[in-house]
């Protein structure tokens, strides 16, 4: 049990997927202008990442490895993620319309979110067991959501400030992300 707690803390804070491993930066800059979109994106990522993490692990262990097809990992993972996103979208629209409305346009965007693909690959590279990869997928996704929400909060404040012209929008966003990343960097001292 203690191991899992450590794993969760390290995935959420120390090795934060966004601020320490730089995965998923595109939606990070794109969807962090408003608090609501940030929360929506965070939820969608948690949902998809847990499913993608477990399914890709099963595929890797029971299809790719026994048939010595590891070189097809990239293409099979991306196809799994893409079809999973599509499937989740259709399923939600039919059965839980409220959640579907909440996540809205963020679902299709997740296909090209490198955080999802990245976590699946990390799980395989680190040779985690099934339960471990389930835990890491969930905690990486929570870390992603946490960073996104924090960042959106800061960014809403920055909008009110007077920023020099050339630094507007993305440029100041990146500098702010750097500061946030510096804060998360402190957790490395704990590990």
């Amino acid at each position: 049990m203690g191991d899992y707690v450590l794993l969760v803390i390290s995935c959420i804070l120390v090795n934060n997927i966004l601020l320490a491993q730089y995965l998923g930066c595109c939606p990070f800059m794109g969807t962090s202008k408003k608090m609501e979109t940030a929360i929506g994106m965070g939820m969608a990522v948690i949902f998809v990442l847990v499913m993608a993490g477990s399914i890709t692990w099963l595929i890797d262990a029971y299809v790719l490895k026994p048939f010595k097809l590891e070189y097809l990992r990239t293409i099979s993972f991306i196809l799994v993620i893409a079809s999973l996103v599509q499937f989740v979208e259709m399923f939600l629209r039919k059965s839980i319309p409220a959640l579907y409305k909440g996540l809205g346009i963020f679902l299709p965007l997740i296909t090209t979110n490198c955080a999802v693909m990245g976590v699946c690959l990390i799980n395989i590279n680190e040779e985690y067991t099934f339960v471990q990869s389930l835990v890491t997928s969930f905690s990486y996704a929570v870390g992603f959501g946490l960073a996104l929400v924090l960042f959106a909060g800061v960014r809403e404040r920055v909008l009110l400030a007077r920023v020099p012209k050339p630094l507007e929008d993305t440029a100041i966003g990146l500098v702010v992300a750097g500061m946030l990343s510096l804060a998360f960097f402190a957790f490395k001292g704990m590990a």
């Binding site: 491993q21 440029a171 500098v175 750097g178 500061m179 990343s181 960097f185």
Partner: peptide, 12 residues
């Protein structure tokens, strides 16, 4: 990591 963000922001 922090340097990467700040550096890219300043280059932008």
């Amino acid at each position: 990591a922090p340097g990467a963000f700040v550096c890219l922001g300043l280059m932008l």
